[in-house]
Each structure stands twice: as structure tokens, then as C-alpha cells.
């Protein structure tokens, strides 16, 4: 399985300084996630789920250990290179959607494409295709405040997939939604995994959401439960 791994972590640790105290959030984690997996990361609050997700996504750096995504070491990249790498390889879906309130759904989805050299018409076309994929074509010109929570999250997912990333990282994507909207989002993530072959890592508290994943990993006090590891 190691050869097929998209994500490979070796001895990854993360410490935080809180005043004079050092908090050990993750302890020497080893983890392999195969390409095309849909992995749910569960654990109590403060267990390090989001920290692990941030490390895999390259928006935080490990205190020790190595992180390799699709054969590329990301833990030793410069900030600039890491930014470019994220733009090409990772799509993020946040619990609170994190859309820019002043932009329409279409402009929000187009945002990652501004970093490319694509002409405006092509950017617009791709943004609308992504919105179509999440079933929100008719809401393209609406601003986030004019959308329901579920719709906002779908826009967030469209933004995450618009640049066709290798990896989709979702941090509590249904945490702020009612059950029905949450199910719709999970349906969408499942479809992206099964039909588009996207590798998805989803942090969740919710066993109902975790049940949709192919694998579930439990994190407790910075350590992965051995028996649940994929």
C-alpha cells in the first residue's frame, strides 16, 4: 500500500508554545493515505485533528518528521513554494465556509483561478462548471448572504475543486449545517470521491458523517488509533 500512497507522513510531531509551556499536539505520527481514499478523521476536541489536516494541507509546519504528498516533500518547502503547491494540489473546505462576503458565488469560485494565467473567459467558464457540479449554477450571481448554509458550503466545495486539486481537505464540512444540508454535502463529497476520483480527508466529530467515508481514523491525544488506521 505504501507505494500507492498519496499522503505519507513519517514521525510527524507538532508542538505549540503556550507561554512558557510546550503543548505536544501530535506525537511522531506515521500515516499513509492511498490515492482515491475518502478518509474520515475523528477524535475529541483538542486531539489534533485539524492540526493534522493543516499539516497535510501545507498551511502549518511540523515540529518534526516528514510529509510527502504525491511524492513531493512539502515540509521542507519555502512559504512561497508551499503557496504555489497548495494552489495546484489542495482544495480546502472549511466548517464556516469562509467565502468572501463581497463577492458573488461565481467570483468566489473563480478566486483560486486568479493565480493562474487563464484568460477571464476561461476562468469564468471553469467557475461555472464547478458551480454546475455542485448544483448551484442558478445561484452564480448571488452573494453568500443570499445563500443558505448548505448552498454556501457547496460554493465552498466548488471553490475547492475548481482548480482540479489532487487532494480535498475538509475541516468539519457539515459542522455548521442541519442534518438535511449536511447529508447533501456528504452526498456531494462522496460523488466527488467516487465519480471524480478525488482523495478526500475529512475531519469530523459526527459519526454519521464519518460513516460516509471509506476509512475512519481516530486521533486521541495526538496519537492515531492503530486498529483504525487505514
Amino acid at each position: 500500500m505504501a507505494d500507492e500512497s498519496l499522503v505519507r507522513l513519517r514521525g510527524v510531531a507538532k508542538d505549540y508554545k503556550r507561554g512558557a509551556e510546550t503543548v505536544h499536539v501530535l506525537h511522531a505520527l506515521d500515516l499513509d493515505i492511498p490515492r482515491g481514499d475518502f478518509l474520515a478523521l475523528m477524535g475529541p476536541s483538542g486531539s489534533g485533528k485539524s492540526t493534522l489536516l493543516n499539516l497535510i494541507g501545507g498551511i502549518d509546519r511540523p515540529t518534526a518528521g516528514s510529509i510527502e504528498i504525491a511524492g513531493t516533500r512539502t515540509d521542507s518547502m519555502t512559504d512561497g513554494d508551499l503557496g504555489k503547491w497548495r494552489a495546484h494540489h489542495v482544495g480546502f473546505v472549511f466548517q464556516m465556509y469562509n467565502l468572501l462576503p463581497v463577492l458573488t458565488a461565481e467570483r468566489n469560485v473563480e478566486l483560486p483561478l486568479l493565480l493562474t494565467k487563464l484568460p477571464a473567459a476561461e476562468r469564468r467558464k471553469r467557475a461555472n462548471a464547478a458551480l454546475g457540479l455542485v448544483g448551484l449554477s442558478e445561484r452564480a450571481h448571488h452573494k453568500p448572504r443570499e445563500l443558505s448554509g448548505g448552498q454556501e458550503q457547496r460554493v465552498g466545495i466548488a471553490r475547492a475543486i475548481v482548480s482540479d486539486p489532487t487532494l480535498l481537505l475538509c475541516d468539519e464540512p457539515t459542522g455548521d449545517l442541519d442534518r438535511k444540508s449536511g447529508d447533501e454535502i456528504l452526498d456531494l463529497l462522496q460523488a466527488l470521491n467516487q465519480q471524480q476520483g478525488k482523495t478526500i480527508i475529512m475531519v469530523t466529530h459526527d459519526p454519521h458523517a464519518a460513516a460516509r467515508a471509506k476509512h475512519v481514523l481516530h486521533l486521541n491525544k495526538g496519537q492515531l488509533s492503530r486498529d483504525a488506521a487505514a
Binding site: 498551511i59 512561497g80 497548495r86 495546484h88 480546502f92 472549511f94 468572501l100 478566486l111 483560486p112 493565480l115
Partner: peptide, 12 residues
């Protein structure tokens, strides 16, 4: 929002 943009790949 600046954090989100950086997450999406916008450089400093």
C-alpha cells in the same frame, strides 16, 4: 479573509 486567500495559494 486574508488567511483564506493565503490558504488558496495567494503569496504574502
Amino acid at each position: 479573509e486574508i488567511g483564506v486567500m493565503k490558504t488558496l495559494g495567494f503569496s504574502g
